[in-house]
Write a protein that binds this DNA or RNA. Structure first.
Lengths: 127, 127
DNA sequence: CAGTATCCTACTGGATACTG
DNA sequence: CAGTATCCAGTAGGATACTG
């Protein structure tokens, strides 16, 4: 025998596109989770969201909402009064994300303290 | 009565820190999901991961692994042979993320085509 | 009210070269 | 083998000003 010791089986495929990666691209930017947290409660208008989300800039709110609309996660409804009223809400597709976001929240509540402990333990090891 | 029409109740709190946001900070960077997909199968060595993940740079693999180690998601085990062998694996905390990543994958498989359709519908509306 | 448009900075991440 | 160090381009996102 030329090889007596077999290496572990190679990972059979190159990992190029990960399905979970695609979902993360949808929801993992800086503001989407917070926008989602609002819309999960009820439809909300632009300026109200801007007031409710601490630190968000005008530009990023527009940009993130437009992106979510493009991807079918939120709907945008214009009431052509003067001044116009624009209401954002979760689309049916957006609603299917609710359990996922809930799972993220739950993991955070159960485990983020462990992450924090690990961070501190690592610090001490390095210093 | 001074107000006959009540506005919707204001969102009671400013949204500043979203728990789901914190988890996303852990797992949503460019490479973590793919690294996770490997380590979920079995512990893997540095160079093997570099070969398995298409397009990752040397620097980003080091950097992402170091970050995951700091946060307690992966463990790093050095066998001091020459040359040294370094094996990465999911920590117990990392293992608790498996169902979450699975949920992300499942949502992707069930709904990413709807996202794609929405994107195309939006294009046509704009043009 | 609900947006665009522009400018500008800081960070992310790729390429490349060197090391125990 | 498994890193670190440096340099550099592209982009994300904040501040600000203007508009239907």
């Amino acid at each position: 025998m030329e090889k007596t010791l077999q290496p572990s089986s190679p990972h059979s495929v190159l990992i190029a596109h990960c399905p979970s990666r695609q979902v993360l691209d949808l929801i993992a930017d800086k503001w989407t989770a917070m926008i989602f947290a609002l819309l999960e409660q009820r439809p909300t208008r632009f300026n109200e969201m801007e007031r409710a989300i601490e630190g968000i800039s005008h530009k990023m709110l527009t940009q993130t909402l437009r992106s979510l609309e493009q991807r079918g996660i939120v709907t945008r409804t214009i009431t052509p009064t003067i001044p116009p009223a624009v209401e954002y809400a979760l689309s049916p597709l957006g609603v299917t994300l609710i359990p996922l976001m809930a799972a993220l929240r739950q993991w955070a509540e159960e485990h983020m303290d462990e992450v924090e402990q690990a961070r501190q333990a690592y610090e001490e090891k390095v210093i």
